[in-house]
Design a protein around this nucleic acid. Sequence first.
DNA 1: TCTTGCTCTGAAACCCGTTTCATAATCTAT
DNA 2: ATAGATTATGAAACGGGTTTCAGAGCAAGA
Lengths: 323, 323
Amino acid sequence: MINIANIKEIAKMAKVSVTTVSRVLNNHPYVSEEKRIAVEKAIKETNYQRNINAVHLSKGETKLIGVVIPYANHPYFGLLVEGIANEAVKNNYKLVLFQTNYEEQREREALEMLKLKQIDALIFCSRNSRFKIIDKYMVYGPIILCEDTRGKNISSTFIDHYKSFSQALNYLYNKGHRKIGYCLARRTGSNSSSREKAYHDFLQKINEPFEPNYRFYDCLNFEDGQEVIRSLNAMSNPPTALLVTSDQVAAGILVCCKEKNIAVPDELAILGFDNQPIAQIMKLTTFDMPLINMGNNLLHQAIHPLVVNHEELYVKLIERETV
Amino acid sequence: MINIANIKEIAKMAKVSVTTVSRVLNNHPYVSEEKRIAVEKAIKETNYQRNINAVHLSKGETKLIGVVIPYANHPYFGLLVEGIANEAVKNNYKLVLFQTNYEEQREREALEMLKLKQIDALIFCSRNSRFKIIDKYMVYGPIILCEDTRGKNISSTFIDHYKSFSQALNYLYNKGHRKIGYCLARRTGSNSSSREKAYHDFLQKINEPFEPNYRFYDCLNFEDGQEVIRSLNAMSNPPTALLVTSDQVAAGILVCCKEKNIAVPDELAILGFDNQPIAQIMKLTTFDMPLINMGNNLLHQAIHPLVVNHEELYVKLIERETV
DNA sequence: TCTTGCTCTGAAACCCGTTTCATAATCTAT
DNA sequence: ATAGATTATGAAACGGGTTTCAGAGCAAGA
């Protein structure tokens, strides 16, 4: 029984106007019981389905939320999207996924879709485009970021990475570490900058020199741990502790340590981030990040764009055996 | 400069009919150079953008492809989606993601969106609904599956899991193993069934008894390896080799083995599937699955639904150190 | 009794493109 | 020279809903 009827036919069948049918469909008040029942009967009999594109055209909304992520294939974004998706289901929204590989062109496409009203709102889980560009598109619909935007006119759910990185550094300091390195996913980006700033401020506070070699970038996946250990091995004065902003990478490092007989945590302490399942099984000390929660929240902000609000979520230290 | 103009205004400005504007927008032939330039000028001046929802209503297509996955947060589906997404970008399509957690209700929503023409085609990376239900929706648009559908009237890109599982079993057999267990992601599903059938046929062929304890289900993530090793430890007569249909799980098992001093591969051989990065770093022997490729192909079939076609892709053994 | 204010209803305007059809002008081939 | 194809153009129909507006019926308050 292929889709056939349109609202006119329903109106004819129920002997009412299309307006009344539309009212029934949208649960408007001011429809008499009698006519409502007649319309519902006609709908049932014809197996009528609204043409959703017509609805979109009329209403100018699509019930679609854009989600920008650099890689679909990474547990951090996996969890974030999971959180967004679950909340979307609850609220009868669907997601349009933009996998960008951090190409600005892809991000621009997402923004353009917002402009064209093909999506109702846009969530940036991570971005490469400058803020200025994103700002230009804010008139077209809600845009939500997943980074600290306090002081800016754009809503977000975020973790204060300056704060949590500082917390992590202090934790290592209290465990006696003075030579601390770190691994970041990328060189640029709001979150990375916050962390680097925290690092520099920390060094200053404890009065230790800045060692450029102690920084590692492009640490994204399990396999990136190899390169870190390789570099460490080549150092005459390697760090005694490593802050690793992804449990995947931390796990990769850990495996390499075992292989190369580097004692963890005695020779090298490893502190992860995310508290992914892999951290649990590998007994990784890590900072729990409420990613699912964060996803929930992001979607909520996207569909209830009442006011600009910045929602901070907090990390929690999970002590296990690598520090 | 908020969106303002519509096609009528452009027509007025360029002193042509809306039809001609539409022709220019859609690169129809039969527009004189002169008018084409006038229209393009008006478009540029007003910064005109087509209302995409009106286009959808008119054309009955959306340039949106639905992608059904159970979990966003799993490397198998991550790679598959990555492959689909990359090909989508190339062809100017966007993806609508349906994360189902294997709930039929979610799968149904995706199918309904196809019916409502809110998406042009639908790709099932994995499904829970019976084939019969999916079949009912095939009149509404292309549906592509990621499983062996040969003999069925529905397109797919797939790996013959019967074949590859048999290949894996034979490989272990030739290495001297007779007591072989396996870990699957779920109890039901087309791929799992093929593998179980391969297993049974293999046992019969080599004339070994069927040992129900050697089967493990719900092995999806890294942490699920723990439970497998726990069970194995409690067995008086455990398998000497394990076929693990996800490198994540295999890696989890491997880590647990190290922890419990189970020698791999001497005491327990582990054979993974997928050839994820984690397999490389952990020196896991595994079957490479062309997931990105598969994703590319799935999208291609979705947007070029000319005829029913079943595209088989092949696994490739990667010998490392766990068998 | 007269106003005011609900409740209920439908005609018509609106959202905004695409496509069909009719017509005219200009070529091409016989 | 003439039938037939090709190029070029716009009016109008179409896709299918939502929303505005005007009007009718009826009840409550002044």
